[in-house]
Amino acid sequence: MEHVGRTGEPDKRRVRQEFLAARNRLTDDDVRAASRALAERSLELPELARARTVAAYVSVGGEPGTLALLDALRARGVRVLLPALLPDNDLDWGEYTGPGSLARVQHGGKMALFEPSGLRLGPDAVADADVVLLPGLAVDTRGMRLGRGGGSYDRVLARLEHMGARPRLVVLLYDTEVVAHVPVEAHDKPVHAVVTPSGTRRFASA
């Protein structure tokens, strides 16, 4: 799936709209079933089995569900960090200690997010993570991730590189969101793996 505009640059906005439209057609039962399978597949990852700290996120809307995975990681004794959106679209981080540690936060006209309600640890806290679980809309056969366009995780990945941190980067998606090609820009970086309800795919380019 690729759209090329008049300038010759891939039209990321149109591609995002197509993937979001497909998610909007999912039923609640579809999302719940995918969430259970995604947690099972993710917990099979050797990277998560070894991890002491994982940076993750709380799914919203039609995103593949993450809460079951977050609770399973905590049950293993893993420290789980969750993002909090800052006014400039950068991300602060806080620790997830269970559903009671989440607050629903409305950021202007954007979708409401579930963020950690406890102590904020600062944007650099993500560098402590052994694995970073990334949201996205699609990933291609090169491991290139298509995000939602806000730029928050571009900042996270740039910060990790600047700090010399090298966590494993894993994106969580539906099966239909692993595609042949997504549009990319010069700053985009490949992930190490994608987990979907049916399994895991790894990428040598990361």
Rank of each mutant, 00 (worst) to 15 (best):
E63N: 12
L133P: 02
A125C: 01
A112V: 08
R104E: 15
H162A: 15
S101A: 13
L102E: 10
A56S: 12
L157E: 07
Y57T: 09
Y174T: 01
A84Y: 06
V132N: 00
A49T: 09
E177V: 03
V171C: 06
L172C: 03
V156C: 11
P99A: 11
R52D: 12
R104P: 14
P167T: 10
E115I: 07
R52C: 09
P64Y: 06
D71W: 00
D154W: 09
P167D: 08
H107G: 01
W93Y: 14
L172W: 00
A103P: 15
L113I: 04
V58I: 14
P46G: 14
R74S: 12
A112Y: 13
V58K: 06
P135S: 09
L81A: 08
F114I: 00
H107A: 11
L173N: 01
P87K: 08
A51I: 08
G147F: 07
L69G: 06
G65N: 15
T97Y: 02
A51P: 13
V170N: 02
G94M: 05
N89Y: 07
Q106M: 05
A112K: 09
L137T: 03
E177G: 05
Q106N: 07
T53D: 08
A138S: 04
G109E: 05
P83K: 05
Q106K: 11
V178M: 06
L45V: 12
D175P: 07
G151L: 13
V178C: 03
R159I: 08
D130Y: 12
M163A: 15
G100S: 04
L173G: 04
A84S: 15
P64G: 04
R155S: 04
A138Q: 03
M111T: 14
S152I: 05
V54P: 00
V178Y: 04
R168C: 10
G109I: 02
